[in-house]
Simulated assay, not measured.
Amino acid sequence: MRAVRDFASGVGFFMQGVGWVARNGRWWLFGLIPAVIAFAVYVVALILLGRNASALAEFLTPFADSWAWREFFRTTVAIAIFLGGLALAVLTFAALTLTIGEPFYEKLSAKADVLEQADEQPWWRTLPRSIKDSLITLAYVLLFTVPLFFLGFIPVFGQTVVPVLGAAVSGFFLTIELTTLALERRGMARKERFALLRRNKAVALGFGVVVFLLFLVPLVAVIAMPAAVVGGALLVRQRLTSAPETP
């Protein structure tokens, strides 16, 4: 089945990225710098959220003051708030890391994806556009993931179908983030990038879902970030812009 082959191909591009950074250890270390910075930011933010989740749950549920089981209810809400923050951290880790490390990852991506003619611009000129594109992408992510978060409370459906849908949505938007640098070097604007990846959903999902699952493990997310950037560049070079587009 073609969709399955394309999905597996997408996974393969991430593995190519792993192989590339394994052969180029100096560039892997170079790409770790912004990932470590972003990881530290998220650790501090999640610690603060964890410490204040109970107070936030109490603030959000004044209607439960008279309930006999209010403590259980508010504990459940506090856990949901923290898990929501953790999910948001996973979804936005790539975007924040790419924004922080724009000059780092531009060099890393260009090293793995050498072009004779590239639409190169200084990073300080592209940074405002990158931030804007990342915020728009985040808005799309929230548009899908917020309803999925609440659907997750439905028995059975929430524990089976919703996680699969969530991984697919998150994976697709991670691919959008991780292919941005390589596609921008080819002069493609955000709408063109979105359209290209929609036409190649299966390979985009294969690449993004494996990255998303790895990013669920905090330290692995840091270690895998340079490989994900390189894998995104190789995906663009070898598949998205060198072969006929999937109808």
Rank of each mutant, 00 (worst) to 15 (best):
F14H: 15
M15K: 11
M15F: 15
Q16Y: 13
G17R: 12
V18D: 06
G19Q: 06
W20C: 06
W20T: 03
A22Y: 12
A22C: 12
A22N: 14
R23D: 11
R23A: 08
N24Q: 08
R26V: 04
W27S: 06
L29V: 13
F30L: 05
F30G: 03
F30V: 05
G31A: 13
G31Q: 11
G31M: 10
I33T: 08
I33Y: 04
I33M: 05
P34G: 07
P34H: 07
A35P: 05
A35T: 08
V36I: 14
I37A: 05
I37Y: 01
A38G: 02
A38S: 13
A38P: 02
F39N: 05
F39W: 10
F39L: 07
A40S: 13
A40I: 14
V41R: 05
Y42C: 11
V43C: 07
V43M: 11
V43G: 03
V43W: 05
V44D: 08
V44P: 06
I47F: 12
L48D: 11
L49A: 15
G50L: 10
G50C: 11
G50M: 06
G50W: 10
R51F: 15
R51E: 14
R51Q: 14
N52D: 15
A53V: 12
A53R: 15
S54D: 15
S54N: 14
A55K: 13
A55N: 13
A57M: 12
E58R: 12
F59H: 10
F59S: 13
F59P: 01
L60K: 12
T61V: 11
T61S: 15
P62A: 08
F63L: 10
A64I: 06
W67D: 13
W67A: 14
W67C: 06
A68M: 03
A68F: 04
A68V: 07
W69C: 00
W69R: 03
W69D: 09
R70N: 06
T75I: 00
T75A: 00
V77K: 02
A78G: 00
I79Y: 00
I81L: 12
I81M: 04
F82K: 01
L83C: 00
G85W: 01
G85D: 01
A87H: 03
L88R: 04
L88M: 08
T92A: 14
T92M: 10
F93K: 04
A94E: 12
A95K: 12
L96R: 02
L96K: 01
T97C: 12
T97P: 09
T97Q: 08
L98D: 08
T99V: 15
G101T: 10
E102W: 05
